[in-house]
């Protein structure tokens, strides 16, 4: 008897995973980020007469700047908990992982704290990116017709 009672209570307090809502929130927030990115690019082209490639580079720097500023100010973490992949998959997630590792280990000193822990999470992205780019680049190069 006690067991069923306990199970009922445990079931009541179990965290409910709202998968559909999570996916919808990620779609909306991610799409909104993409729209802002395109808006920034078009604004830069219109206002400063940049080429599209330059404007895209500028846009990425702006996004990284604001992501690291908001993480340092402390409220980006709350946004990430709410919107999850909507903010982690754009380039903001890359900047967020770097600065949050850097801030966490600040008290261990500039070399063994900040320096060696900065790429803790972002390192995997760079490693697999470079290895896969080299691998696929080699295949493309060997098959022939680079360009």
């Amino acid at each position: 008897m006690r067991n069923t009672k306990y199970e009922n209570i445990a079931l009541r307090h179990k965290a409910v995973e709202k998968r559909g809502e999570n996916a919808f929130l990620a779609f909306m927030s991610g799409g909104f980020m993409g729209m802002i990115a395109e808006g920034i690019i078009e604004f830069l082209i219109f206002q400063f007469h940049m080429s599209r490639v330059d404007a895209a580079t500028f846009m990425i720097v702006i996004f990284i700047f604001f992501a690291s500023l908001f993480t340092a100010l402390g409220f980006f973490d709350k946004l990430v908990q709410k919107y999850k992949c909507g903010l982690l998959i754009p380039i903001t997630g890359f900047a967020h992982s770097m600065i949050s590792c850097c801030l966490d280990y600040k008290r261990e000193g500039p070399i063994y704290g900040m320096g060696s822990n900065m790429f803790k999470l972002a390192g995997s992205v760079i490693l697999y990116g470079v290895v896969s780019a080299w691998f696929f680049g080699m295949i493309r190069f060997l098959i022939g017709g680079v360009g």
């Binding site: 919808f24 929130l25 990620a26 779609f27 991610g30 993409g34 999850k84 992949c85 754009p90």
Partner: peptide, 12 residues
């Protein structure tokens, strides 16, 4: 909006 949201939704 569609493309960026689609990638984020799949990963979520």
């Amino acid at each position: 909006f569609l493309f960026c949201g689609f990638i984020c939704m799949i990963s979520q």
